[in-house]
Design a protein around this nucleic acid. Structure first.
Lengths: 116, 116
DNA sequence: CTTATCTACAACCATTTGGTTGTAGGTTAG
DNA sequence: CTAACCTACAACCAAATGGTTGTAGATAAG
């Protein structure tokens, strides 16, 4: 029972978000501790605006949300989006496994039919 | 024990490869049955060369290999690359879980220290 | 209050991406 | 053998991407 099925555009955005090392690092940091955008920005050799853009990509992919706290925006990881990506990869592997099993079955049946 | 640690560039390419619906569909098809590049191309409303490009992206991400069979190139999924992506997502989730546990511990300790 | 910090947003730029059409060589079927 | 099929590769193009600098408004610290 799948309550929310991500659209293709959602999945595009989701995997696109992971396809940049800075963004992967932002996710790791934000998973480990609470960070504001500027605290995150201090860790990267790029302009603040560049880091903002990365955070915006993550936000658009539903991987993070921003929570205003005074003059700061705290970046919070949304683990449900992580799980969505993982589920797709799980399914690929399941298809692969099913097919490997099917091939093994065919080979077994083939050998049974051989002695006749 | 991690025998082969993917580079950041590898991971960029890997997730980038998933970030397009046609490429995700190619992976699904190639996981389900054996396809040549032109058989794959027949399923998409785009030029053959466009599909070739998509296959090249998947190849560059180590998600598929091409095996020449006569005048055809058969597209084979490399499940190890799939697993690599999945492992990264698993690690994110582990970090998340560890942190959730740590927060629960702190709250429990905090309540213990309350009555004093 | 003033200054410092934090952020949103815009405009710019070089590179990359996801598509196109075209050319040409190799393999297969009839 | 010829025609059909399959592929590699190139050149092109519009849009997107990952960075830059600049401007301006809001919040916090002193």
């Amino acid at each position: 029972m799948v309550v929310d099925k991500p659209s293709e555009a959602d999945l595009d955005r989701l995997f696109q978000a992971f396809a940049d090392r800075t963004r992967r690092d932002i996710l790791t940091r934000a998973l480990n501790a609470e960070y504001s955008v500027s605290e995150l920005a201090a860790h990267y050799a790029m302009s603040f605006a560049a880091v903002q853009k990365h955070v915006a990509v993550l936000e658009r992919a539903s991987l993070v949300t921003k929570e205003k706290r005074g003059r700061e925006q705290i970046v919070r990881v949304q683990v449900e989006a992580l799980r969505r990506a993982r589920r797709l990869l799980d399914e690929y592997e399941k298809v692969w496994r099913d097919r490997a099993d099917r091939i093994a079955d065919i080979l077994t049946e083939g050998m049974k039919g051989q002695p006749k």
